[in-house]
Each structure stands twice: as C-alpha cells, then as structure tokens.
Design a protein around this nucleic acid. Sequence first.
RNA 1: GCCAACGUAGCAUAGCUGGUAGUGCUUCGGAUUUGUAAUCCGACGGUCGGGGGUUCGAGUCCCUCCGUUGGCUCCA
Length: 673
Amino acid sequence: MISVTLPDGSTNEYATGITAGEIVIDIEGRKHDCVAAMVNGEQKDFSAILESDCSVTGISGFDDDGIYILRHSAAHLLAQAITSLYPDAKPTIGPPVDRGFYYDFADLNDFGEADLKAVQKKMHELARKNLTVERIECSDTELEDLFASNPYKLEIIKDKLEEGAGTSIYQQGDWYDLCLGPHVHSTAKLMHVRLTSVSSAFWRGDQSNEQLTRIYGIVEPTKESLKSTMSAMEEAKKRDHRKLGKDLQLFHVDEDVGQGLILWTPRGAIVRTCLQNFISEHLTRQGYHQVYTPHIGKLDLYRKSGHFPYYQDSQYPPLVEKDMMAKLANEGCTCGELSNMMIAGDIEGYMLKPMNCPHHIKIYSSQARSYRDLPLRLAEFGTVYRWEQSGEISGMTRVRGFTQDDAHLFVTEDQIAKEVLGCIELVQVIFEALGMDDYRVRVGLRDADSSKYVGASEKWDLAEEACRAAADSLGVNWSEEEGEAAFYGPKIDFVVKDVIGREWQLGTVQVDYNLPERFELEYKGSDGEMHRPVMIHRAPFGSMERFCGVLIEHFAGKFPTWLAPTQIHILTISEKQVDFGRTIHEKLKDAGIRSELDDGDDTIGKKIRMRRKFQPAYMLIIGDDEVSNNTVSIRARNGDQRAGVQFPEFLSELLNEIDTKVAVPSLVPPQNE
RNA sequence: GCCAACGUAGCAUAGCUGGUAGUGCUUCGGAUUUGUAAUCCGACGGUCGGGGGUUCGAGUCCCUCCGUUGGCUCCA
C-alpha cells in the first residue's frame, strides 16, 4: 500500500501500482474535468503508475496548466489528422501557445485555409473514436527507427536528447509522436477544437531553413467554453483599432501615400494633440527642454552614429543630391554601384532620420558643457522613418513613419540611477492617468557573451542595477531578460497586449554608453578634467502612432472626456429647440469644449443612432422641457440619462471632469434598472 | 521579404458553373417636426485595386504589380 496526500490535505491508502488517473477519479468522481494529474507537484499522465507515497491533485482543463495540456494534445491530434489525410506531410514541432496551439508540417505544400475544414472534420472523427493516448518509453535506437522517415524528428532527437538517455513517445491509434508529455488520456477529451488559420514558419525559426506550413487552432474543455472563447474573439475584433479608427474617423492609411504612413484625420489629431499636451506639461515639470530638429540629416551623421550602412536595410534609401544623381545617371551608374559609393563615403547624401539621437547629440555638442549643465534633458516629438518589412506593417502599431515622444538625457554616471527613475515615474504617471494597468515591464540585461557590448563591465553593472532598482520602484511585476539589452546599454521596456493578444513595446528607457563615445561627447567635471557623459534614451509612449492605436483598443473608442474628439454632441428634438441648441453649442465652444450640434430634422432616435458611432463623451438632448427650464438632459454612452440639469451646473462639472482627466466619463450616475 | 487568404460605390455587403453589376446605411432633394439605437418618398454614387492575357464576351479564368489580413522573419 502507498499513502497518498489528497488536495484537501487528508491522506488515503491505495494499492501500490495504482494509476494517477484512478486516484483523480477517486477524488473528483467519474464526471470530472481533469486532463492530467499533479503528482508531487509534477505533471503526470493519468496512466502514470504510483509506486510510493506521494501527493496527487487533478489538473482541471480550465486551469492554466490543464488548458496547456489540452492544447498540446490537440496539436498531436492535428498532426494525426494531417498525416492521415496527407501521408507525405512530416510533422515537425507542435507546441501549445498562449491562445491555442499550432503544428508545423514539412512537405505540406499548397495547403490553404480552405483545406482546414476537412482536417478539422478528421480531428473530430479521431476524437470521437476515443483513442487511448499511451506513453511509451523508447531507447535511442528505437527512436531512430520509429522516426527514420522524418529528418526533423531525427534532428530533434540528435540535438535535444542526451546520448543514450532515450525518451518517451505518445501513441494514439496507429499514430505516434516524439514527446515528453503529459497528455490527456483519450482523444475524446479533444472534441472541442477549431482550426483557425494557416501560415508559414521556418524550421527552427531560421529564415535560411526550409519553410514549413503552420496550422493554428484553439481547443477548450467544453462546448460552452469553446463557444464563449469564440465569441470573445469576435468581440475583441470589434475593438480592433483598425476597425475603430475607420468607424470613428481617427486615421487613414492611403495606398497612394504609402504603406505604414499614417494620415491623422481631424478627430485622431485631437486625441494626439491632447496626449502631446499632457506629456509636455510633465516634461516642463521634470526639467526637460523641448527642441525641434529636421526630418533629415547628412549621411555622414549616420556614418558616425553607426546607423549607416549598418542598419541600411531598415531605412528608407538615402537621398542623393540632384546634380550628382544626373551625373551618375549619365555615367550609367547602377544602383548597386551607387549604393557602394555611398557606403564608401564617395557620395554624400541625406537620410530620412531613423531616430532622433544624432540630432540631439549635435545640440549637446553645440556648446561646451560642464558638470553644472548636467543632467541635460532634451525632448522632442520627433518623427522618424524606418523601412519596416511590408509583411510586418499593421494599422497604427507597426508603421514606417512615426513620431516618438522622444528625449535624450545627458548625464554623469552618478546621475544614471536617479534619472532612470525619473523616466520611469513619467511612464507610470501617464499609464495611471489613462487607467492602463495591464502592462508588463521587461528589464533587458546583457547575456554571458559580453564581447558584443560596448562599455566597461563595471559601468554595465551599475546601469543594470539602476534599471532593476527603477523597475522595483514601480510596484508592478517585472522580469529580467538576459540578452535583451541593446548592444550599447541595458533598458527597461513597457509592453502591452493588443486585442488579439499580440504584444507591443510602448515606452522604453535605455542607457547608452555607445553614442557618447562615437560622438566624443564631453563635459568638464568639478575636477577640471574632461569626462564623457552617459546618454539615456527614453520614450514613455514609444510612438504617438502605436500608443494611440493601443489606446483606441484600451478604451474601445470610448475615450475619456478630456481625450474624446467630440466631447458633447447636442441633439435637438424638433426645430422648436434649434435656437436654444445653438446657444448652448456656442457657450460650450466658448468654454473650450469640443461640441457638435445636430439640429436637423431627423427623429431623435435616428440622431442618437447616427452620432453614437463617434462616441462623444455625452449627448445633450434638447426638447421643450429643457428650453423652458434652461436645463440639459445628459445622455451617457450606455444610454443612461440625467435630466433637468441646470446648464451652468453641467458646464462646471464637465470642465472639472476634463481638467482632472477622469478616465471614464461619469457625469451621469449609473442606473441599474 | 516569405507562406496563405482576400481586395465590388464613403461604409457594410450580393453577384452559382464567365454573358457588360444588385442591396442596406451614409450623402443630397422632398415630405414629416418627431422625447432617446432604423418615419416615408425620390435622387446621386461603382466598370468591380492597377496593368496585361485567354475568350465572340470576364467582377467571375490565367499572369503580373499594388494593397489588406493572419502568421513567419525582423524591430537600432
């Protein structure tokens, strides 16, 4: 007999050799939602045989651990279905991921989304067969035999497994896969799967390797949870900033202007201006100096900074002077030759700036600096241009031209910690004001291979420590990531997720030892000697484009009153109230409120319907009652009403709400009925 | 850049196996003067992303370019 500790802390005696699954059934009953068992804190298959005293808990398919197991098993089921329908296809890897699972296949060519249906049908068929999923331990030679026809699996066996250690395979029906597990005990657990998309991937994520076909899917423990997951995905799509940007007329991207080049339309420009003003206030308070610099700079500048030609591929091509261009054309110079001459420095030209640092550096070095000038904080809403790959461009979150809320701080080494902290605080103030608490902080440190970094390692230690301390002060979860540092210094990034779960880096604070070196920046210290400053790059929003894109989704287009493109939309009920409506409209505009007036002859229902899509913070309904009492009826976005409010009272409340940047418009108390 | 899918008026959409584009909303004109998510009538608006090809004939088939979407790769 063995003694097993159960989830409630009690112990029970069982016959030696009982399986984990049998104990789970004993604990949870026959009808349970567990997919595997936790034995002594380790995930195990139900079939795991218990030989000695231990603790056992069921892992529910609704838990994070359980859903991962389901996804992993579903990936196997997918591979089984694919290989039965496409015998030539070779499964490579198929892991669970955050929102579902995928499996990559080699030799599955010309497979498109239209083919998913049949595969999914096959998966359901296999699930319904209730195939037992069996774990089998194999030796190296057995493995090599089993996977002899699949070079990808052989490569994994060779690379990942210790010589002679062997490993497990999982078999369901006549299909098996190399895997550590654990897995569900039967394919019947995988009834609620949906295949979602097809894409490509490279073997081991390396572009120079062969291209594989990747199939994505989702799986849920029950029909109901699958349904709710699917509808949640539908809901998320509705708040996609690309859709809302169009509906709310916030921005436009035009083919004729170019991919990834944002045209800020009037309503979007309001949001951006309000945000910029908001940041500017804080910059002034924190002792920043705002500067302006041009959108281009000489090639030489970027040769010095190292951006040209090293990052040539991710920049717009250089602009060459007219006469030179004509001369080269006459000589029949090819593009390749031109490029070589520019790299060699034989031809001068200009570049659209891919970052603002060199320009700011030139402002620093335009004067002799002393330690008394430091820290020098130069800020600019600086527009930069980068040649992002065409397939990467997306809405406002990944674009080719964008405006960073950029700043560069020139500091002494002693000042790094304090200044990094100051930058972080700014990010936090802004996030807090916007109610954005769902973000992740990543501290990027150097990795073991120190040869690729510039700067002395003692300096790095200090800077890394400063970043850690700053992250700590935030009071939110943060993670260190080795190897995530830039080659020139450690950094702190703020990362948020968009509606479809993709992560985007927003704010960033980076310590830089490299550029001061390259540009030979100096300041005179109190000791009378010349010293080299350190630079801190920081952009609390990242870029206005990306940040606004994320904000649109964060608020689902329902911006706080201070940001809303239309703050008040006045709707008259009939033409009897037109004069009163206009008077109020004028008064609001005089008070600096963004007000719009609809005094047309549509029905009030239609006016509400039409104007609602622009999500004004409030609508004011003006009918006979309001006119005769000099009041307004305030309609909130959710339809709640607050009628009979004296206009001056409404205006002062509204101004206060704007002034204090209240995150959710709240002049109308929620009505439950 | 790579793989896959897609691209019809401002927006949302119909258009089967090829025979010269329908609808709703918006907009405009008229009627109506309305109390909270669709009042009625009428009109304007597309040559089907661009170019080329097959065909007697293409939105519908083929090629190519551009763009969009989902991934991959990349992101100083």
